[in-house]
Amino acid sequence: MERFKYSLDKSSKKYVCPDCNKKTFVYYVDTETGNYLADNYGRCDRENNCGYHKAPSKGKKAYLIPFLSLVSISVKAFKLTDLNGVISVIPKSQILEQNTKNCFITEWYLKTSTINYFSNEIKYFNIDNVSLINEAKTILKCEPKKPSFHKLELLNDMFFGNPVSDNLTEFLKTIFTKDEVANAVLNYYLSGANFFWNNATVFWQIDNKEQLRGAKIMLYNSATGSRVKKPYSHINWLHKAIKEPDFILNQCLFGLHLINEDYQKDIAIVESEKTAIVMSIILPDFIWLATGSKCNFKFDLLKPLKNRNCFAFPDKGEYDNWNNKAIELNKLGFKIAVSNIIEQTDFEAGFDLADYYLIMTNTLN
C-alpha cells in the first residue's frame, strides 16, 4: 500500500495535452488542499497513443521491512535480523521510521542489500514542496530513461556453466517425463540459483530481439510446485542479487523470444511463468507466454504480438479486466481472444489454467 500526498485529479475535467494536442490531459492535485500542481505534472489519458506522464516529486521512498530484532551497534548503525534470520548492518540515516516489529528503510539502501522488499508496503518521507497553479500551461515532454540489459555471458554461466538445481524443475519431474521437462527448461532457459533463497527459480525475460530485459527470482515448494508466500512473498530480481543498483528494469513477456521460432503457431498468454511452462508441455501446439503479473496484460508488453493470433487465459477473477483490455487493443489492430474457461469453474480467485489441467489429469487417472 502506498500513501501519497499527490494524486491524479479524479474529477471529469480534462485539459489539452501539450504532447498530442488532444483534450485528454489530467493534472495532479494536492490531496490535502485540492489545488492543481505546477504545469509539468499530469498524465494524458491516451495511454496507448500518447503516453505522456510526469508525476510530482514524492521525497524519499521507503519500504516497510519486518524484523526479528533491530539493535543499535554504534552511533551510526543498526544491526537488523530479518524474518529469515539474515543479519544486515544498516546506517541509522536510512531507517526513516521504526516500530517494535518493523521499520521503513530507504529504497536507496535496499537496492544495494539482500533484504527482500519487492512486495512490501511503501511510504514516502520528507516530501518536497511542489508549486501550485490554477490554469493549464505548456508542458515539456519527459524523456524516459534507457532500459538496462543483462549480459548474455551471465545467462550462459548460470544456465550452462554452473547450473543449480531449482525446486520448480524438481516438481515438474514428478508429473512429466524427463525429456518433456528437459525440453521445457531449454526452451525457456529455466535456471536455478541460491540468491536470496536456496534452490530458487530464475525466469529470464528475453525479448524478441534476444535482449535480456531482466530475470525474476522466485521460490517454489519442490513437493507441491506452489510458490512460497509465507511469511512473505518470495519474489526478487537478479539485478538486485548481483548488486546492480543502477539497473533500469523494462520488462517484456516471459517467453517472448520464442515467437521468432515459429510464425505459424498461435500465441497463448497466461499470467504465471510456471503456468506458461506447464502448458507448453501439455499443449505444445501454442507458443506459451506469461505476463508475470495481472497488471502486465497491457499495450507496452503485448506490442510485439500485434500481428499474431493470440489467445489469453486469465486467472480466475481477472476475466473482465483482461477482456476489456483486449477489446481496446483489438481496436488498435491486435488479434486477441480472451477465454473464460477458468472463470466458469467453482475454484477460488487466483486459480489458473495449469491448476485446471493438472487437476483434470489427476481426476482422469
Rank of each mutant, 00 (worst) to 15 (best):
Gln205Ala: 06
Asp207Ile: 06
Asn120Tyr: 00
Ala62Ser: 07
Lys10Met: 13
Pro56Glu: 01
Asn323Ser: 13
Phe159Arg: 01
Glu2Gly: 14
His234Asn: 12
Met279Ser: 12
Ile115Leu: 15
Lys209Thr: 09
Leu301Gly: 10
Tyr109Asn: 00
Asn321Ser: 15
Pro163Gln: 09
Ser7Asp: 13
Phe159Ile: 00
Glu180Leu: 03
Ser131Asp: 14
Tyr319Met: 01
Leu289Asn: 10
Val26Ile: 06
Tyr356Glu: 04
Tyr357Cys: 05
Asp128Arg: 06
Glu32His: 08
Ile336Phe: 05
Gly59Arg: 07
Ser280Arg: 05
Leu110His: 00
Tyr63Pro: 00
Gly214Arg: 12
Glu348Ser: 15
Met158Cys: 03
Asn330His: 05
Thr114Asp: 12
Gly51Glu: 05
Thr100His: 15
Lys22Val: 09
Phe247Arg: 06
Asp30Cys: 05
Arg213Trp: 06
Glu107Ile: 12
Ile341His: 06
Tyr263Pro: 06
Gly214Leu: 15
Ile139Thr: 13
Met158Leu: 09
Ser93Ala: 11
Asn260Asp: 09
His257Val: 02
Val89Cys: 05
Ala200Ile: 03
Asn120Ile: 00
Leu283Arg: 10
Thr81Val: 15
Lys61Phe: 03
Phe118Arg: 02
Val16His: 11
Thr31Glu: 12
Lys173Cys: 11
Gly225Cys: 10
Leu37Ala: 12
Leu329Glu: 02
Ser11Ala: 05
Arg227Ala: 08
Val278Asp: 07
Ala200Trp: 01
Asn120Glu: 04
Phe286Glu: 03
Gln264Gly: 13
Trp237Thr: 13
Leu256Pro: 01
Leu83Trp: 01
Ser191Gln: 07
Ile277Lys: 00
Ala223Glu: 14
Ile122Glu: 02
Asn365Arg: 15
Phe4Val: 01
Phe176Pro: 05
Leu155Val: 04
Val181Gln: 03
Lys54Gln: 11
Phe347His: 15
Tyr52Asp: 09
Ala182Tyr: 13
Asn208Asp: 10
Glu143Asn: 13
Glu210Asn: 14
Phe171Ala: 03
Lys240Asn: 15
Phe104Thr: 04
Gln98Val: 11
Ser69Val: 05
Asn236Ala: 09
Ser119Val: 09
Ala200Tyr: 03
Gln94Val: 08
Ser57Gln: 15
Val270Ser: 05
Ser191Met: 06
Leu64Arg: 14
His257Ile: 00
Lys335Phe: 02
Phe118Val: 02
Trp322Ala: 01
Leu190Gln: 09
